[in-house]
Amino acid sequence: MTNPILPAPFTDLAPLAAHWARPSENERSEIRWSASADDFKALYEAMMPRLDDILALLSQHPATDMPEEVRNLFLLACAFAEASPHHELYRGSSAVPYSFDARRFVRTDGDVAL
């Protein structure tokens, strides 16, 4: 995937967006399930220090209507929002420890693109 365009000052996050940012929860889940502890760590270390700034930018845009570069950042932030517990709480495991098989757990409307 070619690197998506991102708004300044977040253009350097484009390679992460290429890997993680997808418009539907089911697509993002597939990526998360195949991630390694190092993948989660790299995403976390790139995003967490800038999370407040990212949220401040996203606060200026309505949830339903964003310019393309903002939408790419939004989708990366969504992927981070779903991935951060794997680094913070689950020691880098792609599965929630001691849990049910996430692949059997269906987001009923999870193919709907954001």
Binding site: L55, L58, S59, Q60, A63, A77, A81, S84, L114
Partner: peptide, 10 residues
């Protein structure tokens, strides 16, 4: 806002 939506996703 888009930020609220991200927070809800989390």
């Amino acid at each position: 806002t888009a930020a609220e939506q991200v927070a809800q996703q989390h």
